[in-house]
Nucleic acid binder design. Sequence first.
DNA 1: ATGAAAGCGCTAACAT
DNA 2: ATGTTAGCGCTTTCAT
Lengths: 347, 347
Amino acid sequence: MARARGSKPARPTIRDVAEKAGVSIATVSRVLAGIAGAGAEAKERVLAAVEALQYHPDLSARGLRARQRKLIGVVLPDLQNPFFTGLAQGVEEELCDAGFTLLLGHCDGKPDRERRHFEVLRGEGAAGLILVPSNGPGADYAPLAQWELPVVAVDRAPRGLDVDLVNTDNRASAREAVRHLIALGHREIVLINGPEAFDVSVERLAGAREAVADAGLPPDSLAVVHSDFHQDGGFKAMEQLLGRPQRPHAVLVANNLMTLGALQAIHERRLRIPEDIAVVGFDDMPWATALWPPLTAVAQPATELGRTAASLLLDRLAEPRRVPRHVILRNRLQVRASCGARAGQNP
Amino acid sequence: MARARGSKPARPTIRDVAEKAGVSIATVSRVLAGIAGAGAEAKERVLAAVEALQYHPDLSARGLRARQRKLIGVVLPDLQNPFFTGLAQGVEEELCDAGFTLLLGHCDGKPDRERRHFEVLRGEGAAGLILVPSNGPGADYAPLAQWELPVVAVDRAPRGLDVDLVNTDNRASAREAVRHLIALGHREIVLINGPEAFDVSVERLAGAREAVADAGLPPDSLAVVHSDFHQDGGFKAMEQLLGRPQRPHAVLVANNLMTLGALQAIHERRLRIPEDIAVVGFDDMPWATALWPPLTAVAQPATELGRTAASLLLDRLAEPRRVPRHVILRNRLQVRASCGARAGQNP
DNA sequence: ATGAAAGCGCTAACAT
DNA sequence: ATGTTAGCGCTTTCAT
């Protein structure tokens, strides 16, 4: 078990490199940092030594000394929702090139887990944070401001924290989706929405209502049921809807997971889509085209959302005192057949 | 921009806590580490000071000194595949309690990105690594052994590296799936498999062949087409199959993404499932029940795979020289209707 | 262009 | 039970 004395299988340090290259550790450090003022010849010798020893700097030590690490935290509500992982992918694509590493955490909607992630991030000396806030009960984003940690929020604004924010035009796209349904002749429409407390829910509902108003239809042409953004919730909401004496003609479901549940409820009742009931989902997921009929959905540019958030964070890192900026990305209604349209048709 | 001199909004250090509590930094350190030999009264004062100052230890400094960080790397081939994120979730569940944080990376199947993750992990001083190896061309897992980084592999063995491994009984479950199809009366069966070079592909093929042999059927009752584990690949493979003069009666598709593609190809030809062609997938995903008919699939316990990997890693951390262990988790055939069975029927 | 040396915040060995 | 102190591996003045 004990290592033979004198052998040196331990990780090489900067000192080993310096010794091997016949220079001082300061020179090694400079070469590695790519700082001007490093002799061409010395540089070469250092690089050779690095290669020979398979030297990789200790990032903890570097971070400790430099008081800043090339580390960006990403905290998400849920790793199982492809919308969020798509987002994470976008963040990574953008940040990787800038030499940052991601510290990814998810909180399953639990504010205390979320807070724990914040504390770790702080402890790790993360340079910034990209956050999809849970905004759950008891969530507290104030410490982030106090720590002066650069934050950019995605998809929702963190309650009580004014920071850079990227999201999508939820209102406009919900409006477009409902407008589309109306144009197709559907009248009794229902929105299976997310929790009432979420901004995105509020926005999507507002958009849907606008579409109804635009068309000069009575407000009660649109019914709303609030659910929880989960598959099971979508199932139950749809079940309940289909149990009513008067079945809706069309549903707009406010996220991908609930759409799955709603679809199952429809199938179990042996209803045909779109003849018996038309369906439009939010989030265009890989499975949308595997369904029959394929699903019409509001496509949210998840990856681009992530990329935008990342570049916003990079900007802020460069200019910490800048006033918070909001950017809104456009969603796109991807028309397929579940809404009752012929493929490609977009009235 | 410049901070007023004398003010102290900077992060509190252990020294600030010590001062406020009227003890030495060593005592603070001991209290925080929960080490015996800390006076009850001193302990209380320290904790109060920590709370008052909102002190959080600098993890870089701690890691530097202790030469070990409570950090576990997880590197995955793909963040968009729910199988892998389910796995990550399982890992986190298990490791979180043990006080570890995850450093999650994905490589999109690219060995160089994979290697970069390894280097970062090493640089960060990660205590261990949970790896789903890409095993792509040029992938080299040798450095991991050289660094003596505890590794546990999941789903596939890293080429050239003998480490702890968790995977599923791919062979047995493929065999069961095909047996099921045969029992249902299907004869011309095709397996849309992953890349030939992958162990999982080899295993699943072997299992499928065994089922055919078990049933006393001629070997050519089972055809195989190799694809790439992606949606598009599944689509193309199925397209090609359906273009043949003699259409297969049933397909087993070797992962969730390819199943999506295959389904789309089937729908586009207006074929009915399971009357015209029966379908069994690998990976039981949330969308399986939203399909009509709902999908019969080999359910892989992704989360449990992750949890098992994590606990294996914890074991190894405790006992580094232990001989590598393999654990195999059972898959379960989730029978629904796409295979032609009546729900619940399992011949 | 290069080196010597201070010290980042913490833990652990040693002293009391 | 508690304090003093020596570094962990690195970056960064300050000399030269």
